[in-house]
Amino acid sequence: MDFKKTYIGRVIYSLVSLTTGLKTTLIEFFTPKVTEQYPENRKTQHISERHRAMLYMSLDENGNNKCIACGLCANTCPNGTITIKTKMVTDEETGKSKKVLEEYTYDLGCCMFCQLCVNVCPKDAIAFNNKYENAVFDRSKLVIKLNK
């Protein structure tokens, strides 16, 4: 007869296994706690770099962006979050007319942060940053113009 299956064996082995469980939780009791105390810990809290909180356009010091107004992002967006207004500008040197971005509007309230727009952009003009405190009192404030 297997000792583990006898009456006494069962008592002893169940006590051992219960003790293992108790040991696990006891270690957990003394480990540092993971709770983030949000509004107080703004200075120390760590938000992952790749956290997608809001779309932005990287602008250089003159306020120029890399956008070529191709409209791929607006077309890919499943929710129609992005609207692009373009205008035709004639280059003075070559005399060719070129489509230029006039207004890049992003509706944060519709965005589901799927990152398809960022992936599809051929010029890496747009990206997500991790600034997550976006609460506002009015829905219209969520519609943001990204270019300057």
């Binding site: 939780t25 957990e28 009791f29 480990t31 706690k33 993971v34 709770t35 105390q37």
Partner: peptide, 11 residues
């Protein structure tokens, strides 16, 4: 309970 679950509990 919070300590056993690695939380802080009511604060």
């Amino acid at each position: 309970c919070a300590a056993f679950q690695c939380r802080l509990g009511p604060m």
